[in-house]
Nucleic acid binder design. Structure first.
Lengths: 161, 161
DNA sequence: GGGTGTTTACTCGGATATACGATGTCCGAGTATGAGTGG
DNA sequence: CCACTCATACTCGGACATCGTATATCCGAGTAAACACCC
């Protein structure tokens, strides 16, 4: 029931990129080395971010990844959906319409979604709302408050100063 | 990233039990037949509910499961935690303390939880809050509003009238 | 007839296989770079 | 000296293994009921 590790990786990677300005693209190898991650698998996740239009990629020498939008217009929900897909946490398999109960209960209106589904979806919605109201820029600001020096360190690791 | 099917099964099963009153226990075979579920696996989930003290079990002939508490004091969060465990959706593996960035950044204060973790946990909390504010009795009431006849059908399937 | 011991059948409970998705790895397609060459 | 061509090395992108968890199944331990038997 846990989320993929890719979400954590993606968020940290996006944050790192947001600290560099839009100078030059950064290769997946460098991004992975920054946090000691397996290069190829991180690359897989980055491709998902490209597909979701959160990153842009450039091939060839001096190629790599770059933020596609301002950190102010990227929410945590965007990142989670990009990596995990748009399906909801709870999946209703309509078991209410199977088995003896359903067989004996012919008169019901199947049109309305079952109450269990609706209740669980309300919780899903609250979760998504909480993710959608937190922008990448907010997280970065909070991160700077904790430790203002980290931005310079990141810039140095990626050879920006 | 989906939740276990067991959650859906558990909620429907608990709802069915809540419609019977506290007359007699119901065996896992009957409960499974009600929705066409695999008996042995449903039984596994029911044991989790027993361990979480949402159900009580009686062995031997005419044994089975019974609600341990009033549906008014069981929340959807209780059910989810019983089946899925108490771990949060997002698991922080502290990658910020690995790799080149961490090696070069010696001065940071590791004591504070990282901002990413905190942000994701806020969303987790909103989700749990939304689950905790929905009681089993609420869902059942909503279900009755949709189709008042279903309770009688359930009682009939389990031989209560 | 009533009480008691025993058998029995039914229940839960946990140990054991299988399937699917997350995780991790690898190699090929494509391109910007830079060198080399000719004008 | 400049423009063009070509080889090159580096990048992303997607196809291929491996691992862990969710799913599904099975069999044994335990118990309450029912029966037979004895008092």
């Amino acid at each position: 029931m846990h989320m993929s590790k890719g979400v954590e990786w993606a968020i940290h990677t996006l944050l790192n990129l947001s600290m560099l300005g839009d100078d030059d693209p950064v290769g997946s190898a460098q991004l992975a080395a920054g946090h000691g991650l397996p290069v190829a698998y991180l690359n897989k996740q980055l491709q998902l971010l490209v597909k979701a239009e959160l990153l842009t990629s450039s091939p060839g020498p001096r190629g790599g990844f770059r933020l596609a939008r301002d950190p102010d217009s990227i929410t945590l929900l965007d990142v989670v959906l990009a990596i995990e897909g748009n399906e909801s946490l709870f999946r209703c398999t309509e078991i209410r319409q199977c088995g003896k109960i359903a067989e004996l209960h012919t008169g019901g209106n199947d049109s309305a979604a079952c109450a269990v589904k609706r209740a669980m979806y309300r919780a899903d919605l609250a979760w998504r709302e909480a993710l959608a109201t937190q922008k990448l820029s907010d997280v970065r600001r909070e991160l700077d408050m904790d430790d203002p020096a980290v931005t310079r360190t990141v810039r140095r690791v990626f050879g920006r100063e």
